[in-house]
């Protein structure tokens, strides 16, 4: 029972918190850049005498001129001291000596300390900006690389075209080689046929001659041989007698 009460009160509190939170965001409206510009980090305000705001001098300037504020300050100090409204007890002289020490320290060590601190500020700012500038630079490099890659891809297209032409040349060469091959094969067969027919004719001629010679020699009888021999001898004798 008690836990339920606690739960309910917690829920109620949460809802009011939501309402309070919502009141800021629910109202809505357009962003007013004119009257509520985004705050920017400005330059430090100008001061005189180390700490007095410049504006206070400007406030005097229109009425009393340049020396007015100094006159006012010195006059006020004189009044306060002379009436002892400003009481110069022992701590006042301590303050004077401290002020002198602060002045000397600021004049002696101030410029070098300021230079050192300015350098530190710059280095810290650079450190904080470094990742951003590095990222920008890397992205620009990536864009450059992408352009390079696109240029290379265009080169690839040229290369592919050249390869296609090369393949066409190879096909042409293969075609011509086969054409030549067919020509030589046909020529070889025709040569073979020619040679074959030549050989056949030669063989048949030779065979015919052999046949004729053998038949002729076979047809010569011993009588005829004898007659021919005799005839030869007679011819030889006739030739010899004529000599």
């Amino acid at each position: 029972m008690l836990s339920r009460v606690a739960l309910r009160s917690a829920a109620a509190r949460q809802s009011t918190a939501l309402v309070v939170r919502g009141s800021a965001t629910e109202v809505g409206g357009a962003r007013d850049e004119q009257n509520f510009p985004r705050p920017v980090r400005g330059e430090p305000g100008k001061v005189r005498l180390g700490f007095v705001p410049e504006e206070w001098f400007q406030f005097f300037h229109s009425k009393t001129g340049v020396t007015g504020p100094y006159t006012f300050g010195v006059g006020l100090a004189t009044y306060l001291c002379s009436k002892e409204i400003f009481v110069m007890e022992h701590e006042y002289y301590t303050g004077l000596s401290l002020a002198l020490m602060v002045y000397i320290a600021a004049k002696k060590a101030g410029p070098s300390l300021a230079a050192y601190l300015d350098k530190e500020v710059d280095s810290i700012e650079n450190q904080w900006n470094e990742s951003r500038t590095d990222t920008i630079k890397s992205l620009e490099d990536a864009v450059e690389a992408e352009k390079q890659a696109q240029w290379r891809a265009q080169g690839q297209e040229l290369l592919i075209q050249a390869k296609k032409e090369n393949v066409l040349l190879q096909l042409e060469a293969a075609y011509r080689e086969r054409l030549m091959n067919a020509y030589t094969e046909v020529k070889r067969r025709l040569d073979y046929q020619l040679e074959k027919s030549n050989v056949e004719r030669r063989l048949s001629q030779k065979h015919m001659v052999d046949w004729i010679v053998s038949n002729v020699t076979k047809a010569i009888t011993p009588d005829q041989e004898k007659q021919a021999l005799d005839r030869c001898i007679a011819d030889l004798a006739a030739i010899a007698g004529r000599k």
Partner: peptide, 23 residues
Amino acid sequence: QHKYVQPKKVGIAPFLQLLTGSM
């Protein structure tokens, strides 16, 4: 703070102002 302490490169002015004010 915005005028004298928070700018990037401040001088001794805010410290002297604080010193004078506390005095």
